[in-house]
Nucleic acid binder design. Structure first.
Lengths: 273, 273
DNA sequence: ACGTTTTTCGAATGATATTTCTATTTTTTG
DNA sequence: CAAAAAATAGAAATATCATTCGAAAAACGT
């Protein structure tokens, strides 16, 4: 185990913090190692133990010892810190493009749209109702069959939900109202089923009607919607508020999709776990 | 030696140029490899052959074959390209925000998903092909009727595109293949029409077939896809690369939706302005 | 539909990287 | 200054990785 009182650093930042804190005093070679990986982290991430040792001017075994002092089983474990830190940060193609103030109207709109999406996503972090989220997963995981309902703007969300559920082996029915058969479909719902409804304002689609039928038939109902005023709220066992921003009248769906994917993931995890 | 007329690429940029030139035609697995390392270069740089092969969904030996086609002795040689490119580009110390350690597995996934969405959106800013974007708008605005085509993961995008177009008064046909009538629908396309196709890897849906028909019927074809290896590229008058990030196998659609909305907005603006 | 060529897979092999261990050197301490 | 403790280097052992190769499958052309 770690020869230090510390628990072993889980991230590169933690490691750096420990190193810079000055609380650890290394003998010569180990200090050499510490200095090298402070100054050349990318070499550590990319190289083999032999290459790193060579560049740092120490023996490979010294690197292993160093790693073990921090509680790692060996160099590979330790190196993973550096790799993780580096992952996802691929250098951009050197376009040297200056963030030009957008002269182009269409591009301006694109940027605005991207901004709206990011704002929507950002709101998930604040005031997210974790309990409701968990409960929704419970209900959906317990269901015999999941009915996915949503129209108009919500329809893209439900199609993706349905597709993903199916790909994960979770049986579900996408109530798409092709052939105007939606009411007949929800007429087949049993109390052992669950409904996953998605609806955004204005709430003038048939979604509330369909969910009302499901409610009468005593199915569990979980809802993603964008305000407490949604007619679905009073029909639902649990619901989650996801507010999408819009730009120039075009609304983002990014947050709803992200939350939806997380729901699917949770259901799968619960069923298989 | 290299099975190609080319001398082997000495840098990552050269490799990328060769790949995007479209002059090389790969069989299925090798194409898979090409797509993966196009989209996840950092995984290639940081991983072992086994890890990369796993993520790309191929055998390790396939990676070796791929490298050898380009004249390298093996994977290690080839990987050096990626490592070199990455070297020296250590990510900046992030703004010291402490990531609240997420105790809840489901919440952790949600955060990851949000991150994937934001990363996808972020990539729009860098290296976005404005010219293609403008040309796409021109083509679509000039069309008599717009056919919107996309299956599987792309379908949520096309439904939203079709809905939004209709709401903005732009007549369009969503080729949804309900009743397996998609081929008959595209059989009605005329040279005055335009096709807006959306397709992501793996490109194993009927979308390429449908677009091929439209191409024969001399319609303008504009495409949103995620790599130059999409079979739609060679059929398209203009195309745009939109790379979506994934988290735990669940892929974001945020960037594609944002770009799609911007396209719709541009078409409307051009028609009414 | 058949035979040929190309491509893929997976196990066996060879190479390399990592870790462990011990003799030796250096540092610390009484 | 000597003895004990700690640290180091280097070699040996182990584990992992990369590559090769032949059989099976798929694709292609006739």
């Amino acid at each position: 185990m770690a020869a230090l009182g510390y628990t072993k650093p889980q991230t590169y930042e933690e490691l750096r913090a420990v190193l810079s804190s000055g609380t650890v005093h290394f003998p010569k070679r180990l200090r050499q190692v510490a200095i090298f990986l402070w100054q050349h982290p990318s070499e550590v991430a990319l190289g083999t133990i032999a290459q790193v040792a060579d560049q740092a001017g120490v023996q490979p075994s010294t690197l292993v010892r160093f790693a073990q002092i921090f509680g790692y089983s060996g160099f590979s474990d330790f190196q993973a810190l550096f790799k993780d830190r580096m992952k996802g940060s691929w250098p951009d193609p050197q376009g040297s493009q200056e963030k030009a103030p957008e002269p182009n109207a269409n591009l301006h709109f694109l940027n605005g749209m991207v901004g709206a999406c990011q704002a929507s996503l950002g709101r998930i972090g604040t005031g997210f109702d974790v309990d409701s989220f968990e409960t929704m997963i419970d209900h959906l995981a317990a269901a015999e069959l999941i009915y996915v309902i949503g129209s108009k703007r919500a329809f893209p969300v439900t199609t993706y939900l349905s597709l993903t559920l199916s790909q994960q082996g979770v049986r579900n029915v996408l109530v798409d109202n092709v052939g105007s058969t939606a009411l007949d479909q929800v007429g087949c719902i049993t109390p052992r089923d669950a409904v996953l409804a998605v609806s955004f304002s204005p709430y003038n689609s048939i979604t509330p009607d369909l969910v009302a039928v499901a409610h009468e038939r005593r199915a569990r109902i979980v809802t993603i919607t964008d305000s407490t005023f949604s007619p679905l709220v009073k029909l639902s066992d649990t619901w989650l508020e996801v507010v999408e921003q819009d730009f120039g009248g075009f609304r983002s769906l990014a947050a709803s999709l992200a939350v939806g994917m997380a729901l699917v993931h949770g259901v799968v995890a619960q069923r298989t776990g």
